[in-house]
């Protein structure tokens, strides 16, 4: 063994020398790299939701209010392609009816009634023409634009993102959505706001090249192509919840959190059962282990 490893060591010594040379170059060679763009955004803090924590659940009334905000405000520009009307009535959803737990979501009267408010395009099987027909619960949410190009054309070149998983697709999730929707501010003096853009400190961005003020006081945040949407009385809630902008934003953030993670409550409840079971099983196995090893000195 010793001879063998000695042999290898001699063979590798040359390799080692060249590796060290490379390392030396790497460490003390060209050190400066071009400065990277620094993206900043204000931290989304100071908002809480009923579904946080291991025991948190969605507030169904708030989910319904949130759906209303989406349907009446957001859906004018934003699609939710991954959701179907039936999803609204699935267990844990905004329009789930706990009195009929075994009713398939697609048969739910609520899902049917909501779907019936929308027309979706289809093909007439007799004529082959493209037609508009009444949606069914199995249909996906109606998209406001037929394709990405139409969406951009109608929004000054900006594409309103699909909201199906937006609460998972943004750092900060629902808290970020809430803060962003309410966080529009007057641009500080010294900031040039491009046409069709709005300043929002919660939107991640790099303001460096739009800022004429002191270089060490570049404002945090970025530009967003969506104007402020949620204002008091924009959406009238059916359950007499006051139509403040805060309530609207909180409700729609809750709804979007559910839409992005519709099995969240089921997941956490399953998790609690799994953890409890594993704790018991682990305890029993530990006792078994102590029993088996009790006479072995080790």
């Amino acid at each position: 063994m010793t001879d063998l490893s000695m042999g290898f060591r001699t063979a590798f010594s040359r390799v080692r020398v060249s590796m060290l040379a490379v390392l030396a170059v790497a460490l003390f060679g060209v050190a400066a790299q071009p400065a990277l763009a620094k993206t900043t955004a204000r931290e989304a803090e100071g908002v809480s939701f009923s579904f946080e924590g291991p025991f948190g659940v969605f507030d169904q009334a708030e989910l319904q209010r949130g759906y209303k905000v989406y349907a009446e405000v957001c859906s004018a520009c934003h699609s939710m392609k991954l959701l179907s009307y039936r999803d609204l009535a699935q267990a844990g959803g905004p329009f789930y009816d706990p009195k009929h737990p075994n009713l398939p979501p697609a048969q739910s009267p609520y899902a049917k009634a909501i779907a019936a408010q929308y027309k979706v395009s289809d093909i007439d099987h007799d004529t082959g023409d493209v037609i508009e027909r009444t949606a069914t619960p199995a249909d996906h949410f109606r998209a406001p634009f037929p394709n990405e190009y139409a969406a951009r054309a109608a929004n000054g070149g900006a594409l309103p993102p699909d909201l199906s998983v937006i609460a998972r697709a943004r750092e900060g999730g629902p808290a970020y959505i809430y803060k962003l929707l309410l966080g529009y501010e007057e641009p500080p003096k010294g900031m040039t706001v491009p046409d069709g853009k709005y300043y929002n400190p919660y939107m991640p961005g790099d303001m460096g090249s739009f800022w004429s003020g002191p270089k060490d006081k570049v404002p945090e945040g970025g530009f967003i192509s969506m104007a402020k949407q949620l204002t008091p009385d924009r959406v009238q809630f059916d359950d007499k919840t006051p139509s403040t902008a805060e309530n609207e934003a909180h409700a729609v953030a809750t709804f979007l959190a559910w839409a992005a993670d519709p099995h969240m409550v089921e997941r956490k409840q399953t998790g609690l059962a799994v953890m409890l079971f594993l704790l018991v099983f682990t305890g029993l196995t530990y006792l078994s282990y102590r029993q088996i090893w009790r006479n072995v000195a080790h």
């Binding site: 953890m275 682990t282 196995t285 078994s288 282990y289 090893w293």
Partner: peptide, 12 residues
Amino acid sequence: VKDAFAILVFLL
């Protein structure tokens, strides 16, 4: 049994 115990802690 020792591995089983460790595996269960890991599974937690």
